[in-house]
Design a protein around this nucleic acid. Structure first.
Lengths: 100, 100
DNA sequence: TTGGAATATCGGAAAAAGTCGATATATCTT
DNA sequence: AAGATATATCGACTTTTTCCGATATTCCAA
């Protein structure tokens, strides 16, 4: 786990926001639907994109960034990709700060 | 305290390194001298610069960045500026991760 | 098997960050 | 006051990041 890459991923308002949204999806994505919505696998890209106000491609890339550094997990189901916080990595990040 | 700015400051190998060096100056700057050296106000720019291998201007700017976001304190004494970790901010950063 | 919906990837323009050398500023010494 | 030393700031150039529109891919449904 590269510390610098991790901090880079967090050094963006939108990506940070996404991480917080994903902390309580029910709260931040009220119009969840079973189709592409609230399962324990996470939230699909479209919901996150609409809420963010940025374009689809940008959000897709941001999610990919968060995934690459391990901050979220990705699960493809049918045509949707569900993203979910990876609490393990986030916890590790806490420890990392302590070693700083 | 702007979270994004804080993460940006940490999203750099050298700046991260400096923060770790400053954790135990005696260990990382063995050729400390009283003149520009080990006091409780911190370590002067020159020592950090030499250890880093980057130029004076770059390190000066990096330290300024760390200072701007509150990760280090700066104390000017004579012609030297001593930089020191700001443990309070670093602790706050730990809490920040928890709220993430 | 064709069309539509969701996501990913590509290519690019603009802004920001990294890094340098040169110069300015501040302060001590003589 | 002049020179030396430590640091800061400036201007320039390169690399990276941000974000977009367009296109490609994947997968479902009719």
């Amino acid at each position: 786990m590269d510390q610098v890459e991790l901090f880079k991923a967090l050094a963006n308002k939108t990506r940070l926001q996404i991480l917080i949204w994903l902390k309580s999806p029910e709260e931040h994505f009220p119009d969840y639907e079973p189709a592409c919505g609230s399962t324990d696998v996470g939230v699909c890209v479209g919901y996150i994109q609409k809420k963010s106000g940025l374009t689809q491609s940008t959000i897709s890339e941001y999610l990919s960034t968060l995934h690459r550094v391990g901050l979220v997990s990705a699960t493809r189901v049918a045509q949707w990709t569900y993203y979910k916080r990876n609490e393990a990595t986030i916890a590790t990040l806490g420890n990392l700060i302590d070693t700083l």
